[in-house]
Design a protein around this nucleic acid. Structure first.
Length: 799
DNA sequence: AGCACGCCGACT
DNA sequence: GTCGGCGTGCTC
């Protein structure tokens, strides 16, 4: 095995294939598929992944591998295979698929350096460069670009051989190391022969506690590094570096829990899954359980079952639901067998959690979408909680859905996949009804709690009665009641499409982003207008830019505005507001929830992020301020989202001994997704929505592909979009439906016009080939960066 | 993606 | 005659 096929870390079509390299003798047996290597690639060095090793090559001029970065492959055989599946299914480059599986920490960072060829060459350099290279013989390229008036002088010096270029490939983050001291055995009993009291303390401490970090020694004994150095010099102790994990949960006391008794429905579901597990079957179980039906306990016991068989489990939880509460439930049951992966961790912390998985030090992973790639090799179970959540679909390349990956891996390992939700996607429920998935239903709440009563308030009537505030009379009264009883309240504002835009009351002019054609959002604290798509900002104008009227005001409701209204109408209430503004700092999310849980506030006000997984015993009232704000999005899933959101939010109330109440404010109370969410009537909603989906040829009756085309020139976009639509109509079967081209719901982002085509199909074997053709046809133009064509299979967003 | 090579117009 | 602009094509 003298050669390796290497996939280089350059994500463009032309390098989307393996390149052969010779393996130097010293690494002949060390290089294995799935390892990272550094290879010379053209004039530079790049990171690559070994796809295969072989004893021959058809390439005549092979170069040698420069460096082997791993001892254990970072990608298992399974993940290497999964990558090819992903790249074929989502039409992405193979390297992009692999990158999605690896922690950011081991992503390569490239640096280019210029250094003096030899000491003498400095005399021949132009004066400007002499000054630069006198003090430092090696400079980073980017640094030089700023120091030098013209970069060509550097390039010339390189050509003349006075300067040389070299490249560095590094990781984004490294293993964290710590220096530790150990007592050398010979001196274990000779402590008395040492006169220095500090040194004797150190020896005594090490004898009692064994290997200790230098940092801890200094803290505990109140000493400096000097006596440690002396002991080291005298060969009494040994100091060396060991790898340590950055453990974000290290200082947290988590109490261990034991399995809770299961009620009938839970037991039923548990046993059905257990049967699949003991039979080593690859089955997909759809666990349809109302909020509060105890799905998590079923997960926990099922995982225990899998651990008893010495296998591993992956649990996916949506990012916003990955709260400390949830993490603690898993850590409480499985202790140090759990690794947690979510976006709140630093790059280094994520890497450490990932290493625990790779080194088989944990058996359970709880994490967001990308945790589906956890490098377990003996998988026994994959759970996807809140299966309906759209965050499981990645909205950049590779555009995969974690559910599809889960099913692929489940099939590979011949293990079960559990999809859990109170409001499953229609796709999943339809599959369960067809018998493709196994359906387990849990209709009752665990502790026999009734579902909260839901009152739907018609805001149009409120307006007719002269109530112009954002709280209906009913909600206002109930808030006062809870405040008085010292019970807690959650107010939920579905913010998207409901942000505060600025409009002129005289002429109706709405201020929009000059680059994106969306309304700008007013931010009160900075008194500025901001675009939520590209970040463009401007000052709030004093007069209308269109008619110069000074009756220009902001409209709509943001959480800030609601907060103010609360302070006005309920001055005594203590409010915690959670939205992107207040939770952007690391750990603040957690802190706020903790405060609320401790009863330090009466009202928790927030956006989507408070809808999930939270469980506060003292919350007895949940208010949904504008239920229909998500109903009018240009998206065929708007009803499903609204139903699901309302159901989730309602589930937050009265999960314990106090009865819960929900008030839903809406301008369209007659809409079926609001009416049916009131009774948490999923089945009727499913039937009703399925009819619509069938009539309009939407999923689950049809599959979808969204093709988005964007370019700065409107004419170009229109022309390309039309060409694509024509090509599709010519080359796909006439049973498929091609929509468009039409302008996207957001017609312009960052000065680029956006058009889209949608393909609806049931069976289209040539689809991937046809789409690849389209990609290749426009490749030249897309490579140059002006034209952009993205292809999204089973899209979740139509923006 | 980077980088070299190469072919044209604009200057010393 | 050379410098430097960018289009073209390759990287084991």
């Amino acid at each position: 095995m003298n050669y390796a096929s290497v996939l280089v870390d350059v994500s463009v079509r032309q390098t989307d294939r393996a390149f052969d390299y010779a393996i130097p003798n010293r690494w002949e047996d060390a290089v294995q598929p799935g390892m990272r290597v550094i290879v010379p690639f053209g004039p530079r060095k790049v990171q690559g992944i070994v796809l295969a090793v072989k004893d021959h090559t058809s390439v005549s001029k092979v170069k040698e591998i420069g460096e082997v970065l791993d001892v254990i492959p970072v990608l298992t055989e399974e993940l290497l295979l999964l990558g090819t599946y992903l790249s074929e299914e989502t039409l992405c480059f193979l390297i992009t698929a692999y990158q999605a599986m690896l922690p950011t920490a081991i992503k390569a960072v490239y640096k280019k350096f210029v250094r003096l060829h030899s000491k003498e060459s400095i005399d021949y350099l132009p004066e400007e460069l002499q000054a630069i290279f006198t003090h430092l013989e090696r400079r980073e390229w980017s640094e030089l670009e700023e120091l030098v008036s013209k970069i060509t002088t550097v390039q010339r010096a390189i050509k003349e051989g006075l300067l040389e270029v070299d490249y560095e490939v590094k990781n984004k983050a490294n293993k964290k190391v710590e220096r530790v001291a150990t007592l050398l055995e010979v001196f274990d009993h000779e402590a008395n022969s040492i006169s220095s009291p500090q040194q004797r303390d150190i020896i005594e401490f090490l004898r009692l506690n064994g290997q200790t970090s230098i940092k801890e020694l200094k803290e505990r004994l109140g000493i400096t590094e000097s006596p440690i150095k002396t002991l080291q010099k005298n060969k009494v102790i040994n100091v060396h570096s060991i790898e340590v994990y950055r453990d974000p949960y290290v200082n947290k006391q988590i109490n261990r829990t034991s399995p809770l008794p299961l009620v009938d429905e839970q037991k039923n579901a548990y046993e059905k899954i257990a049967t699949s597990i003991s039979n080593n079957e690859h089955k997909v179980h759809l666990l349809h359980g109302v909020t509060g039906s105890g799905k998590t306990e079923v997960y926990l016991q099922t995982i225990q079952n899998v651990l008893n068989l010495n296998k591993e489990a992956i649990v996916l939880v949506p990012e916003i639901a990955l709260t400390p509460q949830i993490v603690e439930r898993f850590k409480g049951r499985f202790g140090n067998d759990v690794a947690v992966l979510h976006s709140g961790l630093s790059i280094g912390e994520k890497y450490d959690e990932w290493r625990k998985i790779q080194r088989k030090e944990v058996k359970v992973v709880v994490g967001a979408r990308s945790a589906i790639f956890a490098p377990f090799e003996n998988l026994g179970l994959i759970i996807i909680d809140e299966e309906h959540e759209t965050t499981y679909k990645q909205d950049e390349h590779p555009r995969y859905h974690a559910r599809d990956v889960a099913i692929w891996r489940g099939n590979y390992h011949s293990c079960s996949v559990v999809l859990g939700s109170a409001t499953p996607t229609l796709e999943s429920y339809a599959r369960a009804q067809k018998g493709v998935y196994e359906l387990e239903t849990m209709e009752k709440r665990v502790n026999q709690d009734a579902l909260p009563t839901v009152e739907v308030v018609d805001m149009r009537e409120e307006l007719h009665r002269g109530n112009r505030s954002m709280f209906s009379t009913a909600l206002h009264e109930k808030i006062e009641d809870r405040l008085q009883k010292k019970e807690q309240i959650i107010l939920f504002l579905n913010r998207r499409g409901y942000s505060s835009f600025v409009m002129c009351r005289d002429c109706g002019f709405v201020i929009q982003c000059p680059h994106c054609e969306v309304s700008l959002t007013y931010h009160k604290n900075t008194h500025r207008l901001k675009c939520h798509y590209c970040g463009y900002e401007e000052h709030m104008p004093k007069v209308c830019p269109s008619c110069q009227s000074d009756y220009i005001r902001f409209f709509g409701t943001g959480t800030q505005k609601v907060e103010e209204a609360i302070y006005q109408q309920f001055p005594e209430a203590r409010v915690i507001r959670m939205d992107n503004d207040t939770t952007s700092r690391k750990g603040s999310h957690e802190k706020m929830l903790k405060q609320f849980g401790n009863g330090e506030a009466d009202i928790l006000l927030g956006t989507q992020m408070i809808a999930k997984g939270l469980d506060f015993p003292k919350v007895t009232l949940v208010g949904v301020l504008a239920a229909d704000s998500s109903l009018h999005l240009p998206d065929f899933r708007a009803s499903e989202r609204t139903f699901s959101l309302l159901t989730q939010v309602s589930g937050r109330a009265g999960r314990h001994d106090l009865p819960g109440e929900v008030v839903v404010q809406t301008y369209t109370p007659e809409h079926y997704s609001i009416e049916l969410a009131k009774d948490q009537n999923y089945l009727d909603f499913y039937e009703q929505e399925m009819k619509i989906r069938r009539n309009f040829h939407y999923p689950p009756y049809y599959y979808l592909v969204l093709i988005s085309i964007s370019h700065q020139d409107l004419m170009k976009v229109v022309k390309v979009s039309e060409q694509i639509a024509i090509y599709l109509r010519e080359h796909l079967s006439n049973k498929s439906i091609i929509l468009g081209p039409v302008s996207s719901p957001i017609p312009k982002i960052k000065d680029k016009f956006r058009y889209q085509c949608v393909i609806k199909y049931k069976y289209e074997p040539a689809l991937h080939a046809v789409l690849t053709k389209i990609q290749q046809f426009y490749q030249e133009e897309t490579d140059k960066g002006q034209l952009q064509i993205t292809i999204d299979f089973q899209p979740t967003m139509f923006m």
